[in-house]
Nucleic acid binder design. Sequence first.
DNA 1: CTTATAGATCAACATTCCTTGATAGGAGGT
DNA 2: ACCTCCTATCAAGGAATGTTGATCTATAAG
Lengths: 106, 106
Amino acid sequence: MAAVAPSTKKAVTLFHALSDETRLELLDRLSNGEQCVCELTDTMKAAQSRLSFHLKVLKDAGLVEDRREGRWMYYSLSSQAIEELEDLVDSLKKAAKSAGSARRCC
Amino acid sequence: MAAVAPSTKKAVTLFHALSDETRLELLDRLSNGEQCVCELTDTMKAAQSRLSFHLKVLKDAGLVEDRREGRWMYYSLSSQAIEELEDLVDSLKKAAKSAGSARRCC
DNA sequence: CTTATAGATCAACATTCCTTGATAGGAGGT
DNA sequence: ACCTCCTATCAAGGAATGTTGATCTATAAG
C-alpha cells in the first residue's frame, strides 16, 4: 500500500515536465550530449523564448542542468531526477503486480 | 540517440495522465486492489463527476481498466501501460548515462 | 411500469499552461 | 564607452485542463 503518495507534489512536477512534446524532444536532443540553446533553437526551428520557457520547466523539475560558458548556455540531462522517476515508476509497477482482488463494495 | 522519440504522442498522454495529484491518489488507492467508483468518491470525499473525469483520463492513457458488475463500475491498475512507462523511463535513463560530452557550438 | 441508485456526460466557468513578441541582462568584441 | 550576440524574463492573448452542478443512461428492485 501507499505506492505513489510520498512527495506527490514532486511526482506531479516531474510528470508534468515530461508531458509535453516539445520538452520530450528537448530531452531527446540532449540525450546526444550537452547542447547550447542556440543550437537547439536552430535544429528545432523554434522561437528562442519558447525553448527558454521549456528548458526552465525541465530545469525546475530537476531533469536538466545548465552551465554557462562565455555567452552560451549549455544544457544537459541530469541523471539524478531520472532516478527519482525510475523509483516512482517502480513503485507503481510493484503496486500493479500486487494488485489485490476485488472487495465487496457500497 | 533517439531516446524518447518513438511514439512521442503516447508518452505525452501517459505522462500527462500522471501529472495530477488527484489521479496519482486514485492510482495509489487502486494499488490496494480493484475498487468501485462509489467507494473512491467515499474515501476521497470527492465529487462523483470529478473522479469520473479523472478515471477517464487514466483509462484513456491505458493506466487503468474498468469492469462493470451490476450497477457498479470497478477500476483497477493495468500493468500493461505501466510497462510502457517503464520502457520510456528506461530509455531516458540510458540516454542520461551515455550523455555525450559537449560539442562546440554556434 | 415506476422508482431508485451508480456512474457517465455535458455546459459553463475558473484556472493553469503555452505561445508570441518585446524588453532586459550579461558577456565579448571594437 | 558602444555595439552585438545569446539567453532569460515579462506581459498579453489563446488554448487546453480541471471543477461544479445538472442531466442522461443503464441496471436493479418493487
